[in-house]
Design a protein around this nucleic acid. Structure first.
Length: 436
RNA sequence: CGGGGCGUAGCUCAGCCUGGUAGAGCGCUAGCUUUGGGAGCUAGAUGUCGCGAGUUCGAAUCCCGCCGCCCCGACCA
């Protein structure tokens, strides 16, 4: 992409409404613009990041055996009356009447809809297990939206729902998602720590939150330092028993503020990590909570109907954009982990109009595009400082800088965002380095 | 939902207290000079001063109502 043609409205100053760093940087980097309280427009740069995150989430969900579907954003209130939540959910649920005066709502979550799909279409235990997920927009009419996309009213969520014939198999489905989540967040450059959680209004008896440590996190968290160094599981066969992997994580101490056990502080001593955290995922096993009232049953091996056991598994996809920035930035702007970066490589032409610079940059740009790399070529007629500042602000991981001096010598400066210094290399060596 | 704050140019903000018909910096347009970390000079364009009612000869400014947004707390992916 040529920056001269790209819609990238960067800001030099901090918009007054933004208080936390991720919100400020998302506005300054031209990723989002606010439409109303807790509701955002995603501009091209933000959309690319969101899509990269979606791709990772989807990849890991599919690998874990979940199947993608799309459910409606606007739901019928009838189903919620069946589950008993229509009255319970309260004013956070945006309620709408259609032209026939029927009760509709903008979905804050989809347990009811997915359970309805299940009961209408799956009749035998032989069709189990099933795990259905979607990546879709939700609306919760929060009392106080804040922190940009971290606590919006409208937000993009990955929500998965598992269906199993008994507790042991349902636990396995839970474990699959547990492991998939560890891998998903690790691929985004995040250290997300599973912590035992209250299951809240969704209900259930087994629940973990996945929490990213960041200074601006909303809640205080405590954990054993060992968790920070523990690598995400590799080469997972999701059909195997995963209990030992889950146990290896849950046996190490980690707790949110409300579940924190003070006696652990002494026990851990110097290994105690006190930090703040952002919840980016939450998994629940809730057995028959929805299946029971909604009659989600299959015929069991003995010919008798069995109510299925369910779990639900959420990832705050749009929140992750903010969480990654909170965890990875400096005074100049965002530092994107490679796999979520909107562009892997930036080219800075320091003197547009100079034949040697234009030629050298054009050549790099053509080669990187031919190699199918996401590359942003700053071909604007701007001063060097503006280009450096913008490229750092939007956090492009690899930056190739060409000015008149370098062009004359036939060298390219290679800079890694977040690292100090630059390296002068031949064009070919530079290409090899950034494409490695 | 309790408490607090703020709405003036695209952005950051001054002006309001003490009423006289709107400003600065950045950004934008044009030109010249510059050119390796957010340049300089010159000339321009840009505002229903959040909305509505009121007081007044006159309201960005004072009064009343409304709306929007932000922050702190209680709740949440």
């Amino acid at each position: 992409m040529r920056l001269s043609r790209y819609f990238l409205p960067t800001l030099k100053e901090n918009p007054s409404e933004a208080q936390i760093v991720s919100h400020r940087l998302m506005l300054r980097a031209g990723m989002v613009r606010q439409h109303a309280a807790g509701i955002y427009n995603w501009l091209p740069l933000g959309t690319k990041v969101l899509q990269n995150i979606i791709a990772i989430v989807r990849d890991e969900q599919n690998a874990a055996g979940a199947q993608e579907i799309i459910m409606p954003t606007i739901q019928s209130g009838e189903l919620w009356k069946e589950s008993g939540r229509y009255d319970d959910y309260g004013p956070e649920m945006l309620r709408i009447k259609d032209r026939h005066d029927r009760d509709m709502l903008y979905g804050p979550t989809h347990e009811e809809v997915v359970t309805d799909i299940f009961r209408n279409n799956i009749k035998s235990y032989r069709d189990l297990p099933k795990n259905l997920y979607q990546i879709h927009w939700k609306f919760r009419d929060e009392v106080r939206p804040r922190f940009g996309v971290m606590r919006g009213r409208e937000f993009l969520m990955k929500d998965a729902y598992s269906f199993d014939i008994d507790f042991a198999r349902s636990k396995h489905a839970y474990n699959q998602m547990f492991v998939a989540y560890l891998r998903t967040f690790a691929r985004m450059g995040l250290k997300a720590i599973p912590m035992k959680a209250d299951s809240g209004p969704i209900g259930g008896d087994m629940s973990h939150e996945f929490i990213v440590l960041a200074d601006t996190g909303e809640s205080a968290v405590f954990c054993d330092k060992a968790l920070l160094e523990k690598p995400a599981p590799q080469n997972v066969n999701y059909d195997d028993d995963l209990q030992h992997i889950v146990d290896s994580w849950t046996s190490i101490y980690a707790a949110t503020d409300e579940k924190h056990d003070l006696s652990q502080e002494e026990k851990l001593g110097a290994n105690l990590v006190k930090a703040r955290g952002i919840e980016v995922g939450h998994i629940f096993h809730f057995g028959g909570k929805y299946a029971e009232p909604m009659g989600a049953k299959v015929t069991g091996p003995d010919g008798n109907p069995v109510t299925v056991m369910m779990g639900s598994y959420g990832i705050g996809v749009s929140r992750l954009v903010g969480a990654i920035i909170e965890a990875s930035h400096d005074e100049n702007g965002i530092i994107w982990p490679d796999e979520v970066a909107p562009f892997q490589i930036g080219i800075i032409n320091l003197k547009v109009g100079d034949a040697a610079c234009d030629a050298a940059c054009g050549d790099l740009y053509a080669k990187l595009k031919a190699a199918k790399r996401e590359v942003l070529y700053d071909d604007r007629d701007e001063r060097a400082g503006v280009k450096f500042a913008d490229m750092d602000l939007i956090g492009v991981p690899w930056q190739l800088v060409i000015g008149p001096k370098g062009a004359a010598k036939g060298v390219v400066e290679v800079k890694r965002r977040g690292a100090a210094g630059k390296e002068e290399l031949s064009a070919d060596a530079a290409l090899a380095k950034v494409m490695a």
